[in-house]
Amino acid sequence: MPLALVVAVLASGPALYNNLAFLTTLAIYILLAQGVNVVYGFTGYLPFGYVGFFGAGIYGSSLAITYWHVGGYAAIGLGAATSIIAGLILSPLLRLSGAYFALATLAASQALYFIVANESWTFGESGMSLPLLFSPTALYAISVVAVALTLIVILLVRDSHFGLSLRAIRSDPVSAAMAGVNVVRTRTLAWLLSAALAGVAGALWAMMTSAFYAETPFDLTISVYAIVFALFGGVRTVIGPVLGTIVLYSLYQYIGISNPQYFELIYGLLIVLLVLFLPGGLTSLVGGRGDRPAWWNWVLRRRSAHGDLTPEGRSS
């Protein structure tokens, strides 16, 4: 149901606001926010350098198009594959936790940037220039399909044994391991799934932009936006990151085209206020799953010690 709604909203996008570059970028950010959701929402690891996977997907697909002349769909697959390989190489980082993990992924993404920017076979200095493989309309349609498939995957993950293991690990890795969950493998799978999402997003972005320099794909603000969008909507839900992206990125575009003088200031303050006053995201306001609103937690704590054992509901 929510899936159909999201697809319906995205499909009707061009009728409301016919800027396909904006709508495709919106779909790309939904994929990225869901990727953050998988790795942060379900495992508690904050991938601050998530943009590294996005960049890997961009360069994997672009180089395949340039050197092997592959078609658009193959490029998407190869973009995802490149990001998964990058994820495998970086999987030792999962040994770290908290800020160490966040900063290590950031370092990894920037190291990747310097490799790409330095090498001539990646067109690091001269810039990438791709042929047009899809019309803007076709590319947007593909992006909407990618979002739909992603949501199905996330739903399946959430409700599967795999999702249950992820949640168990998130709340307490030690007990999860004792209960027979393979902690390392489960975490790594979630990590690779989120890498693949960024890879697909990257391939779509590469085909949309087609001419770009290395600093754009590896720009850290892309990570930050994906994280902020996911958190604003509410992680550990399926709809949260979608909602967060649609609301905040539309707002971003709106502020952008209404041309205020203090754009950066407004956006910075918004982030600060968001962290301080809406840590559970939008879905927590509506009484969503996962993080309950702070006041409700307080009520629960007051009423009984069993408050936290309320069974998790479905939908959203």
Binding site: L46, G98, V224, I227, L265, I271, V272, D291
Partner: peptide, 21 residues
């Protein structure tokens, strides 16, 4: 916040944007 480290990272990113602006 249940995850101070992560929340602080995002919060201070916002502060950094404000200081830059």
């Amino acid at each position: 916040s249940p995850d101070t480290e992560t929340s602080s990272l995002i919060l201070f990113f916002g502060v950094s944007q404000v200081l830059e602006a």
